[in-house]
Each structure stands twice: as C-alpha cells, then as structure tokens.
Design a protein around this nucleic acid. Structure first.
Lengths: 183, 183
DNA sequence: CTGTCGTGAGACATATGTGTCTCATATGAA
DNA sequence: TTCATATGAGACACATATGTCTCACGACAG
C-alpha cells in the first residue's frame, strides 16, 4: 500500500493546474492519501511544488526526445510532439501556469529549455517553408501550449476522449478551422 | 483621486487570472490602491470575485453583441468576435479559469450563455460548410477561448502588441500553421 | 506469532491572510 | 478659509492553512 511518488505528483499537477488555491489537504485527498502521508513524502508545499516542476520538466523533455522533434518533416515532427505531450497535459498545464507567475524575464530554466526546443522546431518549419512566416514563432509556441493544456482539461472533464486529443490539437494547430476544398 | 471600480476589477482580473493565490493586499497593490480602500469598495474577497465575474460576463456578452456573431459569414463573424474578445482577454481568462473550478456539470450561468452563443456560431459555420466538421464544436469553442487567453498573456508580457492580437488569434484558429500554396 | 514499516486520524502551535476598526492626511467644493 | 469626502497607514481579533507531533491500526516479512 506504499505511496508512489509519481502518482501523487500527477494528481497534484492535475489539481493544482486547475485550482492553484488547493490546500495540502485537498491535494492529499486528490491523491487518495492522508495529509500526514503527503507531508512524509514532501517536506512542505514548497518542496512539493519544486518536485512537481522538476518531474514535469523531465516528463516533457522525455516526450520531446521520444518525438525526435529535431528530425524529419517539421509538420510530422509537430504531430509527434503533440502526441507525446497530450498524455502529460496535466504536467504541462502546471508548468505553463507556474511560469505565468514569474517576471517576464526570469523563467524556470527547465521551462526555458522546453520553450527553446519547441521554438526551434517552429523556426525550422518556417525556414523550410512548411509553417507560415507571418505569425511569430514565439506566438505559435504559446498557441501550441495553450491548445495542449485546453485539450487536457477537456479530457479531465470527459468532454474529449484521451485518444482523440492528439488529433484534435494537431488538426486545429496545423490546419485551422476553415473547411477547404483541396485537402 | 476617487477609485474607479471598473479599473480595479480589470487589474484584479489580470492578476488573478495569472496568480489565483494573490492576496487582497496583492490585488490592492496591483490596482494602485490600499487594502483598506479595496475593502471599502468590495465587502470581501468573495464579493470582489463575484463582482469580477459579473463584469467579465457583461464585457464579453457586450463584445458578442458588438461583433454581431449571429449575422453574416461565419468566418468573418469569428474574426469580429476575436477582435472584440482580445481587448478583454484578462476578463475572459479570469472567467475561463474560474469555470475550471466547478464540477463539469454546474458552470456559471453567464459563462454557460457565452459558451452557448460561441458554440452556436461554430455549429452554424459547420452547417454552412465554412468550418470543419471533423472537429467537435465544443472543442473548437475551447480552442478559441484558450487562444484568446494565451494572446492576452503574451500582450501582458510585452511579447505581442495589443493591436496584433486579433489577427494572431484569428489566423491560427482559422487558417492553422501550415503554409499553403493557394491562399 | 512477533516485529517492522507505512499509513490514517487527530491534536497542537505557528504563520499567513482576512475583515474591521481608528486615525491622520489630502483633495475638492462652498 | 472651512467642511466634507475619500484615501493610506496601521493595529487588532479572527479564520484558515501549514508543519510537526503522537498514537493506533493494518499489511507484510521473518
């Protein structure tokens, strides 16, 4: 019946990304454990948030590695990235929200690495003529994150099936909403 | 030097949508007033949040009216909607975040009205063959909100000019990221 | 069975935020 | 000027969350 640190952190991420004011007791209940046990595994709220950020960065960077976003056709690389990101949308949402707190110039180093890698993919696609150049790479990066987070919430609410999420995000981001005659 | 209620609420919306844990003192400072004055205008935090939600709903519904989203070409209506929404992105972000707290079945009535009107526009576009049918109207509604919120944060951080925001959001949402030969 | 380990429940002091109050000051009208 | 009004600064009691503790229970290995 031992508590698994990763599972607790995943529950905490999904709760905190939606309700940042959740108490330690709320987090414990969301993870299915008591507050005492939660404190045994994490020295305090600060330590928990730190561990959460660390795990989130690792999960997402692992996803970037697995998607091999530096290789091949940019559009396909973006689809692979989205497919890797949607299962860990809760962690991404937490990180994304957490980095809205800092001053615009001092982001978390791990988050900065992630943004840089995703931004590089976008720029690579723009240079190859695959992605539009009239939209800034920075904005497209933000848009990608926002859509993944939104899809994660839709899944949490049962409005979207988890297996649909990658396609929903990728189709909107790559193709847009407009119907087209020629695919 | 009298405090203007609307300006205080706008500052509160932009702060709270990013940092839900902000204290009344933080909110007061963000609005450029003292905590005492903040309490003179709003009975308490609960009352402030209520007033904020009320104003946010009104601002956005006014925008929907001004954009006349029920009329004309759906794609153009969506562009008008985005143009009206981006200036009040802070309020939309607050409402959007606030409604992630409730249980999936009991949203704020005002927010439900907004979602319904936007959803109706999406469905109208799908029925007319203007918008894609392979993506659910609900998801497209969520995607729209998420992109507007993200653009608002970009503006707050100085990464995007306010006047660019409508086009950035509308272009990604309608056209997607992919470069195309034929416009 | 016996001992150990991890847990849940709850008590407790402390820290932080909230809501209310008083008082001094500044602005603006008569 | 004189007065009214609104504000800022700060004190205060109170509520809530946090962090630490003790104790009892149950699972599991020996």
């Amino acid at each position: 019946m031992t508590v698994h640190r990763g599972q607790v952190l995943k529950a905490a991420a999904e709760l905190l990304s939606r309700k940042a004011t959740a108490s330690m007791d709320d987090i414990a209940r969301a993870a299915g454990i008591s507050r005492a046990t939660l404190h045994r595994h994490f020295a305090g709220r600060e330590a928990l948030v730190f561990a959460l950020a660390e795990l989130a960065v690792r999960q997402i960077e692992d996803g970037l590695d697995a998607a091999r976003i530096e290789e091949g056709d940019p559009a396909q690389a973006l689809r692979r990235l989205v497919a890797q990101a949607t299962p860990v949308a809760g962690f991404l949402a937490f990180l994304y929200g957490e980095n809205q707190l800092y001053e615009p110039g001092t982001p978390d180093p791990g988050w900065a690495r992630i943004e840089e890698r995703v931004g590089a993919l976008i720029r690579r696609g723009q240079e190859r003529g695959a992605f539009r150049r009239d939209l800034s790479a920075h904005w497209l990066t933000d848009a990608l994150h926002a859509l993944v987070v939104a899809s994660g919430w839709s899944v949490q609410d049962g409005r979207m099936a988890p297996r649909e999420a990658p396609r929903m995000v990728a189709e909107v981001l790559l193709g847009g909403v407009l119907e087209r005659r020629t695919a």
